[in-house]
């Protein structure tokens, strides 16, 4: 495989790597909630965003996620940024009043630009968080965690094991199919296919020459896998034990506690309409007044 796929597990032994996948998954959900809360004013949004970004940055460093990889994946966000700006400029947010500049008679509001910036900030944080989870957790462990969380659903006869199995098989085949994609791309490139340049019609043909063989082999693989599972007497309803058990340690409780406090703080700030900027500002003016 030529390039690393985004969010591939990186076998280090960091603090974050050693955490239980269940706690990591829950922390991710909590942090996501924190990232998506809104605040009373634009200034507060960016102050809180900055604080969260800083925390996430520290987390990235601790989990030894390659920042190079993160930035290369953020590069693809450029298109998103342009589209977002375009939408926000064409359809300004409600109550937009401050004009940044005008193109002819058309006004472009500060609120449009800030709104886009807010969404980009959230996207960056979301991607970083997900990257931390997938880069530090083996896909299979993640599936186990998911299955564990779905356990209560078993009571209503929800096929949790089957779903976990499906997910883990899907995860298992991502690298295989990526390799296969590379292989077919190379084979077609040897037949003169140019995947990067060329006219639209040629590009469609190029993609077709990749997709058709890829689907063929994916179907074939799934059939072979199904047969292999049948041959080994796989029964999804059977009670089964596990080779690797998840282990919840003190570090997990501690990290989860930290994440909970952080999220609770964020929610409180948002619900109570606290404005730290004004508070600090008031204190300083007050002390200066003294």
């Amino acid at each position: 495989m030529k390039s690393l796929s985004l969010g591939r597990y990186a076998p280090f032994n960091s603090l974050v790597h050693r955490l239980d996948p269940r706690s990591k998954l829950l922390i991710l959900v909590l942090m996501m909630v924190a990232v998506f809360y809104g605040y009373s004013s634009q200034v507060m949004t960016f102050v809180m965003g900055g604080i969260l970004l800083l925390i996430i940055f520290v987390m990235l460093l601790v989990s030894r996620v390659s920042l190079r990889q993160l930035f290369s994946s953020l590069k693809a966000l450029w298109i998103m940024i342009i589209i977002l700006l375009l939408i926000n400029v064409l359809v300004p947010p409600l109550g937009a009043s401050r004009i940044a500049f005008s193109v002819g008679t058309y006004h472009i509001f500060w609120e449009s630009i800030l709104q886009s910036a807010k969404i980009i900030l959230r996207l960056v944080m979301m991607i970083s968080l997900t990257l931390i989870l997938t880069a530090t957790t083996k896909p299979l462990d993640l599936t186990y965690a998911l299955e564990w969380y779905m356990y209560p659903l078993k009571l209503i006869k929800f096929p949790t094991h089957e779903i976990a199995m499906t997910i883990s098989i899907a995860l298992r085949f991502i690298p295989t199919l990526l390799d296969e994609t590379m292989r077919i791309m190379n084979a077609q490139a040897s037949r003169g296919v140019d995947f990067e340049h060329g006219k639209v019609k040629e590009k469609i043909k190029a993609i077709l020459s990749l997709i058709v063989p890829l689907f063929m082999s994916a179907f074939q693989r799934s059939e072979e896998l199904a047969n292999a599972m049948e041959a080994r007497g796989y029964n999804p309803r059977a009670k089964r034990t596990r080779y690797r058990n998840l282990h919840w340690g003190g570090g997990d409780t501690f990290s989860l506690l930290l994440a909970t406090i952080l999220t609770a703080g964020v929610i409180l700030t948002s619900v109570m309409n606290w404005n730290y900027v004004e508070m600090i500002f008031n204190i300083t003016t007050w002390s200066v007044g003294l």
Partner: peptide, 28 residues
């Protein structure tokens, strides 16, 4: 340099044999 990969049969994708074989020359 014509390069034939291992298990090259997985690179076929056209509707007919002759179209698939003609795919390379057309690309060039």
């Amino acid at each position: 340099v014509g390069l034939v990969f291992q298990f090259p049969e997985y690179q076929l994708f056209e509707e007919t044999v002759e179209k698939d074989v003609a795919f390379g020359p057309k690309n060039f």
